[in-house]
């Protein structure tokens, strides 16, 4: 019973984080500069890791954490690539 309640709490929190993602997406669309958008998407990436971890706990599927780990590892990649692109135009790799 308490375990079910805890799982429900995890899932509701995950749903709230998805709603937060939509709110952050507003900044990603409206943000006047590309840097604003980049930062918003970066926060969205961190948000994704949190949502995956909450789903792993709430649905009793521990392997969700593997995908969360992959995202945590890859999240910085886009930020670095676009930052480099903006600073030295054309230098991505």
């Amino acid at each position: 019973m308490t375990a079910d309640l805890l799982n429900d709490i995890f899932l509701v929190t995950a749903a709230l984080f998805v709603v937060l993602a939509i709110m952050m997406f507003y900044r990603a669309v409206a943000g006047p500069t590309t840097q604003d958008r980049l930062l918003a998407v970066n926060v969205l990436g961190t948000n994704t890791v949190v949502i995956l971890a909450l789903l792993a706990a709430g649905l009793d599927e521990p392997w969700f954490l593997d995908i969360a780990l992959i995202y945590a590892l890859l999240n910085f990649l886009m930020a670095i690539a676009i930052s480099k692109f903006t600073v030295e135009r054309g230098g991505v790799l």
Partner: peptide
């Protein structure tokens, strides 16, 4: 950049 956000959402949905 926004396509990156789309990709994040798709990954959660696939999971």
């Amino acid at each position: 950049v926004v396509f990156g956000a789309y990709s994040l959402g798709m990954a959660i949905l696939y999971t």
